[in-house]
Design a protein around this nucleic acid. Structure first.
Length: 483
RNA sequence: GGGCCGUUAGCUCAGUUGGUCAGAGCACUUGACUUUUAAUCAAGGGGUCCCGGGUUCGAGCCCCGGACGGCCUACCA
């Protein structure tokens, strides 16, 4: 006997439910039923409530209150929770006896007339019922639900059954993604799908997942970004494209990182960083208004007001504001010392620019709670973006910060193949992106000037739903496997 | 990866100084109850105290090691 069976055989709850199931079978009830015609979801039945109207519904029994010759129970179908009332003299002796053998968690189909109890609760007085699925395992406690964080993620289905607010977050996620697609489609953008398995992992700087493709006996990488393929499409003549799908990065897990995450990338030929700025401001306010019905999120210090226009500020101004007007004139040692005074960990070999960026990421970024476009980032940070016309040391880009987190970077895309080749080549260190020769060849055929942006969908949903952890907006977040 | 904290019944949680400490509520079983809704009332069953060592007359509690989780921290977004 294996371990699983030992556990199951010793489980009094499962044994009891199996006994109840066998008794139901003896009474002629099949424990796993077939398709059931419903008048509608419970939410729809509630919305169209009329006294004495006969309805059919199906769902999971979530509470049962037995009162002798009558029973109250609550049926839940994901849309709503609805009380049903079972009376012995309405249902008949046999069907009533059988109903008493049902357990919390069983899925049933019911038919009956709508009425209102004297406590004012809309209720279905059932005249017939069908067992659709027997539940063999007990559900979490009805008051507190499932709280154990590990169990909630490992067995998300139980979390969804017993914590209705969790389901609502994921409903909002679905609506958010739908709303983004509707918005982009209405503006003439075309959704495309580019490879998730790539011979080189380009378009960003991150450690990739590596796999092996047997048929070609070749190493493949799960994509860390779709950018280089979407730009090939710009070369090919697609002028307004987007991709909304998964990226994979072989990095750590924490409250805001999951190894697979959802990214929207948008490219618009003949646009630039400014057109992207207008686009994302319109897109996010569209989602906020249509899905959440508000432009204001959170309260107190965390209150975020998405009402446009959003603040625009240069990277340099933010740095000077924080570190002093002379920051860019300081020598390396003085800059390092000043950064260390602010409790930053500065590696000895860092350049002035690296120290500056540490200041931005560790001190400044978290203060940008209201939506802020941070523009003119240093050229060494992003090899795929175009320089500003008036200053070769900074990029014509923005990073949109909301709630102290980066929600979306956007660039005027670099379309000069010679500069692109040089910029990729002059990167150094761990952050270097791969040089994709086929991408560079594509650029040599001519890519139209373009604006592009990426939006971290998980983080956007966190922001809009008030979720503190990325795990709360990903249905099945990555966890360490149980040994 | 580093630091701190946690793991007790199916679920949510108590458990004092190492000595009736194997506990409560929900859930489950049995009985009563035909408008309850955290239904109520009565009785009952249910434990690898995360795992493995150690100290001790005696360990849920102390020590060591491990697994898993949470928070903080470091890297990617």
């Amino acid at each position: 006997m294996d371990e699983q069976n030992e556990i199951e055989d010793s489980d009094q709850y499962r044994e009891q439910r199996l006994t109840n199931m066998r008794q139901l079978e003896e009474l002629g009830y099949s424990p796993y039923g077939r398709a059931y015609d419903r008048s509608g979801r419970l939410s729809e039945i509630r919305a169209a409530f009329e006294e004495e109207k006969v309805v059919r519904a199906a769902g999971r029994l979530v509470t049962i209150r037995k009162m002798g010759k009558s029973i109250f129970a609550d049926l839940s179908d994901g849309s709503d929770r609805f009380q049903i009332y079972v009376q012995k003299n309405k249902l008949g002796e046999e069907a009533f006896t059988a109903f008493k053998l049902l357990d919390i968690g069983d899925i049933v189909g019911i038919e009956g007339g709508l009425f209102t109890t004297r406590m004012g609760e809309s209720t279905i007085g059932i005249t017939d019922w069908t067992l659709l699925s027997k539940s063999l395992l007990p559900l979490p406690e009805k008051w507190h639900g499932l709280k154990d964080v590990d169990a909630r993620y490992r067995q998300r289905y139980i979390d969804l059954i017993s914590n209705p607010e969790v389901r609502e977050v994921f409903n909002k996620r679905t609506q958010t993604v739908q709303s983004i697609r509707d918005f982009l489609n209405s503006r003439g953008f075309q959704e495309v799908e580019t490879p998730m398995m790539q011979p080189q992992a380009g378009g960003a700087a991150a450690r990739p997942f590596i796999t092996h493709y047997e048929a070609l006996d070749t190493r493949m990488y799960l994509r860390i970004a779709p950018e280089l393929y979407l730009k090939r499409l710009l070369v090919g003549g697609f002028d307004k494209v987007y991709e909304l799908n998964r990226n994979f990065r072989n990095e750590g897990l924490d409250r805001t990182h999951n190894p697979e995450f959802t990214m929207l990338e948008v490219y618009e030929a003949y646009g630039d960083r400014r057109s992207m700025q207008e686009l994302i401001q319109a897109m996010i306010t569209h989602v906020a208004e249509t899905v959440f019905g508000s432009l204001v999120f959170g309260d107190g210090d965390a209150r975020i007001d998405l009402t446009p226009p959003w603040r625009e500020v240069t990277y340099r101004d933010l740095i000077v504001e924080t570190m002093g007007a002379d920051w860019y004139e300081l020598g390396l040692d003085a800059a390092r010392a000043k950064a260390q005074e602010r409790d930053l960990n500065i590696e000895p070999d860092w350049s002035h620019g690296e120290i500056t960026h540490e200041v931005y990421e560790k001190i400044i970024e978290r203060t940008l709670v209201q939506p802020t476009f941070v523009t003119r980032l240093p050229v060494e940070l992003i090899p795929l973006a175009r320089r500003c016309e008036d200053d070769e040391t900074v990029l014509d880009v923005f990073e949109l910060e909301i709630g102290g987190k980066e929600i979306a970077p956007a660039y005027t895309e670099l379309n000069d193949p010679l500069e692109q080749r040089a910029r990729l080549a002059e990167q150094k260190g761990d952050d270097a992106q791969v040089e994709d020769d086929d991408f560079l060849t594509a650029l040599e055929y001519g890519m139209p000037p373009a604006g592009g942006m990426g939006v971290g969908i998980d983080r956007l949903v966190m922001l809009l739903t008030g979720s503190e952890a990325i795990r709360d907006v990903i249905l099945f977040p990555q966890l360490k496997p149980r040994s």
